[in-house]
Design a protein around this nucleic acid. Structure first.
Lengths: 124, 124
DNA sequence: ATTCGATATTCCCATGTGGATATATCGCAT
DNA sequence: ATGCGATATATCCACATGGGAATATCGAAT
């Protein structure tokens, strides 16, 4: 009887398309952060991720999809920044929807599994 | 238009109940292997996993659930062995069902994401 | 009593993942 | 011209994860 809001921390879903080509919560959160902050560095900071790692994730995402998901600019008044491309928005939306429908579909199973745990965590 | 049979390698789902308490494809495969072979070591070998790791996974599973999922015996004619308890069977079945319904529910989203890849992997 | 095969448990080490750090570059604003 | 802030990129290193190997233990069968 636990209802899964957009981000249920219990439920993690990852798509493995090929070795080294995967999409999961980490990259999704990063895309979200970039969309919100307009910066790779700021997005990384917000989720306690080093800039190096954040940038690496962006690089692999841009490489694995037909069109880049993140567009970045250097220099300028604010030093630069990054924004989601149309493809980036689409991927993010699609993945979030996937998470939502998948978890909703499996909610009953998740609840039954959780009920079998020794110490049932605070539901949410 | 890709149909997800029981084990679609693209789709990986993990439940994170608490730090150190998670259930995903690895443990599920191991449970399956134990049920099939009647041995922790054999199950580990079958999936290229060291006995040490297989045993560790069994240990954590037995610890995190109210009742142990795997019951093991030492000594005897065949040296010993391991079988799934009723709880073990239930957890395995429940998790496989979860994977199935979750993937089926998200199939359209998965296909759309895959279609955006640079090189579309061999569907299956 | 000895053998046998699997579980149980420990120790050491290779590996790689990612953090920290340093540096270079860019372009607008002042 | 200089400063600033973010991207871009490489190098070094701490740490955790897990493999490999070694050892002990168990219980039925011979």
């Amino acid at each position: 009887m636990t209802q899964g809001s957009p981000h249920d921390p219990r439920f993690r879903l990852r798509l493995v398309f090929a070795p080294g080509e995967m999409l999961g919560p980490g990259k999704a959160d990063l895309l979200e952060g970039i969309a919100r902050t307009g910066s790779i560095a700021a997005a990384g900071r917000d989720m306690g991720m080093s800039y190096k790692r954040a940038w690496q994730l962006v690089e692999t995402m841009n490489a694995m999809f037909r069109e880049p998901l993140v567009e970045s600019t250097r220099g300028g008044a604010k030093g630069g920044g990054a924004v989601l491309t149309e493809a980036g928005q689409a991927v993010l939306t699609e993945f979030r929807s996937l998470e939502a429908v998948a978890e909703k579909a499996g909610a009953a199973h998740i609840d039954r599994l959780q009920a079998m745990l020794r110490d049932i965590p605070d539901q949410k």
